[in-house]
Every structure is written in C-alpha cells, then in structure tokens.
Design a protein around this nucleic acid. Structure first.
Length: 202
DNA sequence: CTATGTAAACAAC
DNA sequence: GTTGTTTACATAG
C-alpha cells in the first residue's frame, strides 16, 4: 500500500529522467515487478488533439479553411454542431478513405475508436459519459457514423471501452438504474477515494 | 509483432 | 434490448 504513492516527477514524465532508457515498450519485462499499476496507468498515449490537428492539417494544405479549426479547438470547441451543416458533409467526401485503423473523422481528422471516445469524454461536461451518451456524441459529431450501420461501430465502441482498462475508467452511475459512467483513466490519479480500485484481477 | 478494427458469443441487468 | 466482457480473426504498418 505504501508503494503506490511513491511516484516522483520522473515517473510521470519519464523524458525528464536523466538516464532515461526510454524503453516503455519493454516495461512488461523489466519494470513490471516494480509498479505495474503505474505503468499501466500512464500507458495512456497522448491525447493532444491539437497536435493531431496540426499534423493532419500540415499534411494536407489543400484545405486552407481547416486552419481555422485550430483556433476553434483552442478556443473551446462548442461544437453543438448544429445539424452538421452541408459544408461539413461535403468535406467528408466519399472519396476520402480512411485506413482501417481510423474508422471515423472528427473535424476532418481521421481518428481511432480510442481517440474518438477520448474526444467525446473530453468534450463532456465533467469528463464522464454513459455508453449511450458516447454513442450520441459520436453520432452527432462523426459523419461516418451516419450510414445506418450503428450496430457495427457501437460494438466497436463497447469493445474498446472494455478492452482498454488502462485507458478508460468505469464508474458506477449515482443515478439509479442508469448505466456506468466512463471517463479517462488518468482521473484515477486525482481520485479522493483511497484504495478501492475495484478491480482485483484475481 | 503490435495496434487496431470487426464479428460474435456470452453474461448480467 | 442494453451494457459489458471476452475471444477470435483480419489487416496495416
């Protein structure tokens, strides 16, 4: 129990580590005995959508109008996304194909399911959404999901939520009868609940 | 080999 | 039926 809180800044930001044999990919072999929990916890990759934005934008100078999305995002992204204006629909042309690992695009940026869910959570009121709310947000904001094939992508959403336990946190919904609340697992760091991390994988 | 997507069986509610 | 969990297989890189 004492080992859990023993982290230092270098643990959070390994790039600051002086010696830094940056081998995160191998922590399973090397470091797991030490702090597998933390290793898993901070396994979460970057969720820097702005960075993603820039990369994709600079890659395709074709759409100069996209540069403005950068500002929008930085502002606050109040994407009530009214009715997905026809322009939006246009930008997601049928000739625009995504590699298989990026099934949908948000604001023109191809993203994986994980990134899409993360985006939905990030844009929610308090970072917590029910499964249904995740569905709804994605349906509102991802035109690729408008093809009437909800069963397919919704299955993938559920699969992602369950599979990536180090990325997503499931929390009981205080409202009775409603399904769990999902959030980014990094929130565990700030949980005031001491101790009960629920899942004992025997 | 790893990350991801897709399909599907299954349990719990 | 919905929500989660899990296994299996396919494919891109």
């Amino acid at each position: 129990m004492s080992g859990l809180i023993n982290l230092q800044l270098e643990d959070l930001m390994p790039e600051l580590r002086p010696d830094a044999d940056h081998d995160f990919t191998n922590f399973n072999d090397q470091k797991s005995a030490d702090d597998p929990f933390l290793a898993e916890l901070f396994d979460t990759p970057t969720y820097d959508f702005l960075e993603l934005d820039r990369q994709e934008i600079t890659k395709e100078p074709e759409n100069e109008t996209m540069l403005q999305t950068e500002m929008e995002v930085e502002n606050e992204v109040d994407l009530e996304v009214e009715k997905t204006s026809s322009q939006n629909q246009e930008s997601i042309n049928s000739d625009m194909k995504f590699c298989s690992s990026r099934p949908g695009s948000f604001r023109g940026i191809p993203m994986t399911y994980y990134e899409l869910i993360e985006t939905a959570l990030t844009h929610s009121e308090n970072g917590k959404l029910t499964l249904k709310e995740i569905y709804d947000w994605l349906f509102e904001n991802v035109a690729e999901f408008h093809d009437g094939n909800a069963k397919k992508w919704q299955n993938s959403i559920r699969h992602n939520l369950s599979l990536h336990r180090s990325r997503f946190k499931k929390e009981q919904n205080p409202e009775e009868g409603k399904s769990s609340l999902w959030s980014l697992n990094i929130a565990r760091c700030f949980s005031t609940n001491d101790g009960d991390f629920g899942d004992n994988d025997s």
